[in-house]
Amino acid sequence: MSLIEITEVKKRFGDNEVLKGINIDVEPGEVIAIIGKSGSGKSTLLRCINGLETIDEGSISVAGAQLLPDELHLKALRLKVGMIFQQFNLFPHLSAGKNVMLSQMVVKKTPKAEAEEMAKKMLERVGLGHKFDAYPDQLSGGQQQRVAIARALAMEPIALLCDEITSALDPELVNEVLAVVKELASEGMTLLMVTHEMRFARDVCSRVVFMHMGRVHEIGRPEDVFANPKTPELKQFLGMQH
């Protein structure tokens, strides 16, 4: 059994079918890049995996937790997959440390001292141990995104979903975030990331998923997908016009 099983998933927004039957199985420790044009359904797919969007058909399960639309099942699922957003979404009224502590205390009922210790450890892990007391608006975009990663990690998920996590960053801040992700990948974390960083996808990922018009158009190892795209759509997307 795979860690994440996505089976025949369909999703409609009104008349617009954005996912037209998606099948992907993810093994533990895999790092998967989802690439594609905007509107191809890649972000929607990621948001479905932790229940931020409901699905109309098919099924999604993560380590045995099924995606079902009630709060109990959603919570069980979300405890297994963390999510990191393009806009960081840190809580502005809490310091970096409190951002990492909050969900541990509220959701897992972790005692404060323990949550604080975990928060320190996780901030240390993303290189921000010294920013425990800083508020989000005192941090750069790259630092905020690393706090968001620490916040997700503190819940001890078995997989992380990254939704264009470097797209809102200034170019010089992209690398510090990618370095953290690379580190996580090398430690064996299962990662699904929607990304436009093709070089990163090629260097770090175990598989690349190319989505087009709501379908998985091509899937394979990065060296194959990038060097020998089979379909004209992927060739065009990669800028190979011959």
């Binding site: 932790n50 919570k75 979300r78 957003f85 806009q87 979404n89 969900s103 819940m155």
Partner: peptide, 16 residues
């Protein structure tokens, strides 16, 4: 409130 705040809370397993 930005929508992302609700989504961040939800993705961390918090109830509404």
């Amino acid at each position: 409130t930005p929508k992302g705040q609700f989504e961040a809370g939800a993705s961390l397993g918090m109830s509404r």
